[in-house]
Nucleic acid binder design. Structure first.
Lengths: 186, 186
DNA sequence: CTTGTCTATGAAACGAGTTGCATAGCAGGA
DNA sequence: TCCTGCTATGCAACTCGTTTCATAGACAAG
């Protein structure tokens, strides 16, 4: 149940409401963990019940009130426990690879458009990550500065996202070349 | 529900029992889709009920009988439909990245062992993939041969796995360097 | 004044995935 | 003989994740 832990990390970085968390999961956290608002609200409620989170009703002007959650001591302890126990390297679920192998029993050429779509989506993500890196990780706090650990760790995770997108784009180029070769060789 | 489609692809490549499928999911298919035997048996039963699969009781000597499944015409049609409809680029779930960002609120040095463990696991997988590539994709059917499409497509998926592991290993090196730097900078 | 959009929260139902347990034949070794 | 291990199949209970729907205040455009 790592959603719980992802929420704890995000709320430690900055307290916020369920709605705000949902938007963070569309942005930075979403690069390595996805969640819908339904899931988030449900888990927040459970964690509040377990005493891992504190809630504060925040009245706002011009918009509905919100509930701002922050991490309570037991929540911090739970996160620490999780950080110290080993986890299994992630198991992969890659639909596109299933489709590629399935193309052997169908028209391989039909896959080309689909692969191109994925190629564009990953190129967009890469551009987005690189823009984020320029915005948040260049300038005064340049390399060598002791700075705060959080910033360094956020940066290394972002570099992972960038490496992933670059690798995926290169592989999709390989896939496209292969599909074109199969079509030509008929 | 891509497990269904992964099973269809696997059974088209070669008919087999639930048990055999479970083992394939630990091996080659497992590189891009994981499933336990429980899941597989449940889905096989449903697909048989829907008429997408044919079953054949196969008596064996020295071991229990097995049910050999193969793809029926409606199954093949269902796979073809799925291959022609667009899918979303996968959403990521990366526990280790959550831990890395969480390390900002704990002892970053404690993560080093964990990251090293993952590094070894990915190195092992890479070695395993490379051995499979040497075994199955070198020799007579060298590049240029028309060959069968299935073989080419299996190879390009395997190359994706290899690229993924190489990228991950390089990133984990980056993560380790970052953690060591944070510990030194204290 | 209606329609649409954004913030904000939530219920209900369903489908996918995990974990633990149960059964059973056969083989090989202590 | 008993224990372990491999092949082979399956149930039950549970948790996790997705989809659909509902509500409600504020604001802007038409």
């Amino acid at each position: 149940m790592a959603l719980e832990h992802a929420i704890l990390v995000s709320l430690l970085e900055k307290p916020g409401s369920g709605y705000e968390l949902a938007r963070r999961f569309e942005r930075s956290i979403g690069y390595f963990w996805t969640a819908t608002h339904q899931q988030i609200y449900r888990v927040l409620k459970r964690m509040e019940g377990d005493g891992r989170l504190d809630v504060r009703e925040v009245p706002q002007q011009g918009r509905p009130d919100k509930k701002e959650y922050s991490v309570a001591a037991p929540g911090r302890a739970a996160l620490s426990d999780w950080l110290h126990e080993p986890i299994e390297p992630e198991s992969v679920r890659h639909d596109l690879a299933v489709k590629i192998r399935g193309a052997a029993f169908d028209d391989p050429a039909a896959l080309i458009r689909e692969v191109e779509r994925h190629h564009r989506a990953h190129s967009d993500r890469l551009a987005h990550y690189l823009a984020g890196e320029r915005r948040d990780f260049t300038g005064p706090e340049a390399p060598g500065t002791p700075g705060d650990a959080g910033r360094e760790l956020q940066h290394v995770v972002l570099r992972g996202g960038i490496a992933y997108e670059r690798m995926t784009i290169a592989w999709l180029d390989d896939v496209l070349a292969t599909l074109h070769r199969l079509r030509a060789g008929h």
